[in-house]
Design a protein around this nucleic acid. Structure first.
Lengths: 345, 345
DNA sequence: ATCGATTGGTAAACTGTTTTAACAAGCTGG
DNA sequence: CCAGCTTGTTAAAACAGTTTACCAATCGAT
């Protein structure tokens, strides 16, 4: 069936005794083609196993049918379940909508060479999904004018006018704080994440305001940066508890830091949740497979990725309205949290 | 500096008062162009901010400068640190060599529609890196003839003649078994992974033969499938220990299953490594952040990905010899292993 | 002075599509 | 009976480069 040499549209046209324009129109289901001709050509296409060259298609057409996923320049960025969930959602949705997905990393030289613009100018892609971005990523402002479509995934910016699809971090933080306060915790530590990320600042914000509205004066010493990593989370837990051993709960900005904290407490023989409760943020797959299992906020990352992808494709095809979606999150109560130990017990 | 409208090669040629052929040759550093002309044209290119359209370049040239990474059709396939490490290595190396990376998933419909061939015929990519493949992936045999370049990453096949870059799983398994035997373990359980993966069979093979050469008769009940997941690992550990409570060590085919097993043992208050030692395989990032930290085999997955990528590009550019690389691995001793408890103690 | 080689450059063909304007044939209405 | 409208098809232009064959000018050697 499939011919030895690759067959082109000209070849199909020649054998079908029609023009290439006709073959092209058959391929694109143009209604100007008669039923009979359509059938004849289609049959030949199937028999020859003809597949249109998409380089030529994109060259003459308006779209490349390719999207870029831009990841931060962290070493081993892909080996991260957080990004993995987002990318899963993106790829699945893109595939369903006939799009291909290309991977890029926003390394310093990438941005310096203005490759984030170049991939549009050279027609590699139709749009960008920006993952893991923060306030220091100044290259994002090149997309504020809207010349090239870009959607910020799971973060947002007030300084630049950018499309975004994001989880409702504020609501998640509220749920955590309400829950901890309800369990009687008052001296709550906070393992902070990068301050240049807007959603992280939102969470800190809620942490502080919720404490205050519960009549607690948030101590400086209760907060420590954990750099988003297990190591950082462990160190932060140590720092907080050494500064104030009376802290009864730790709220971490993401699961990895929470797991690091958990590990540190286990090593130090601090009972979780008996002496200290721990809460994470993300609900990574293995948060349910540590001891004790981790109470955390479930983020619909797969859905965030999928929706961002869909909105981006809409933008590519002419959507005018800004994209600004916020997806609901919910607290998952597991074993790492319990009533605060009674004072003096 | 950058013009409002996009500038083409013709435009550059017109302004430089040379032919497009000359501009093309300047761009490709063709030595037929004189120093003076080269300078003149290059300066204009820089001033205009001209960037060649790579669709046109690929259309007339031989290469697309794009590689596909083919992932298995697991739900949330990307949210896996194992694949993440491989992809990190691939992307970094591809970027350095001027290649872009495209993501694909080998879902049933993808293969049924022969899209794995179509991405070549339609000129989406120059080559494929196949991750997470197994004996049931019959589509791989379409690449045995070598018409389109494909490299199997971290697995290999004897039934099909395919290029591959793989970790030395046999050596890793030997190191584990030697170590466990040396610690005095004899009743060693094995949390198996998919039997359709050649490297997994290799590990099982070594497990059995090493036991035998130590004079131990491998019991049927000591082996249980863990499906590569935490849940599966936990269930497998339970099954093995319920069948034979005298087992003193568990060897898992990957870290996720080992962590599942560890979790199960923690929950059951079985002391690790006091009563049961646990060994994994992969050395994922967070294997060092569980309690106790996991003894495991470190696989150079980042390097495997990078090397596979490099070899694939060589193949694309005409390399004739088969690719069959095997990278060394080593045991990382942490806290989850110890001397076997003395009998009757 | 003339032949042959070398150097630097160009016109034109080629890659494989989409799209537009034009056009022939058939049909309808006045 | 013919102007005007559909309907179906096509030639040709456009997309934006690379590559090849050829050509003019210069140079060295006889």
């Amino acid at each position: 069936m499939p011919e030895g040499k690759k067959v082109s549209m000209r070849e199909v046209a020649r054998l079908a005794k029609v023009s290439v324009a006709t073959v092209s129109m058959v391929l694109n289901d143009n209604p100007r083609i008669s039923r009979a001709t359509h059938m004849k050509v289609q049959r030949l296409i199937d028999r020859l196993g003809y597949r249109p060259n998409r380089l030529a298609q994109s060259l003459s057409g308006r779209y490349t049918q390719v999207l870029a996923v831009m990841l931060p320049a962290l070493r081993h960025a892909f080996a991260d379940a957080y990004f993995g969930e987002l990318i899963s959602g993106i790829c699945d949705r893109a595939g369903k909508m006939g799009y291909k997905v290309m991977l890029e990393q926003a390394k310093p030289e990438f941005v310096k060479e203005r490759q984030h613009i170049e991939i549009f100018e050279r027609r590699y892609v139709d749009g960008i999904l920006a993952l893991g971005c923060n306030d220091r990523h100044a290259w994002l402002k090149d997309f504020a004018e809207g010349k090239y479509p870009l959607i910020v995934v799971d973060n947002y910016f007030s300084q630049w006018n950018l499309d975004h699809v994001v989880c409702d971090y504020r609501s998640g933080a509220e749920q955590v704080m309400n829950y901890l306060l309800q369990l009687g915790h008052r001296r709550i530590g906070f393992v902070n994440a990068a301050q240049e990320i807007r959603t992280s600042r939102d969470v800190w914000d809620i942490y502080t305001s919720k404490l205050k509205s519960a009549g607690v004066d948030p101590q400086h010493g209760w907060v420590e940066d954990g750099q988003f990593t297990e190591e950082g989370g462990a160190r932060a837990a140590q720092a907080i508890l050494e500064r104030d051993p009376s802290v009864t709960a730790l709220f971490a900005g993401n699961d990895k830091m929470a797991l690091g904290a958990l590990h540190y407490l286990n090593v130090k023989n601090v009972n979780v949740p008996g002496q200290v409760s721990v809460v994470g943020f993300d609900d990574l797959r293995h948060a349910g497979f540590v001891t004790p299992t981790l109470t955390t906020v479930h983020l619909p990352l797969y859905e965030v990725g999928a929706m961002a992808c869909e909105r981006l494709i809409e933008r590519v095809h002419g959507r005018i309205e800004r994209v600004a979606e916020r997806l609901p999150v919910h607290l998952v109560m597991r074993e790492s949290t319990a009533m605060a130990p009674t004072v003096g017990a």
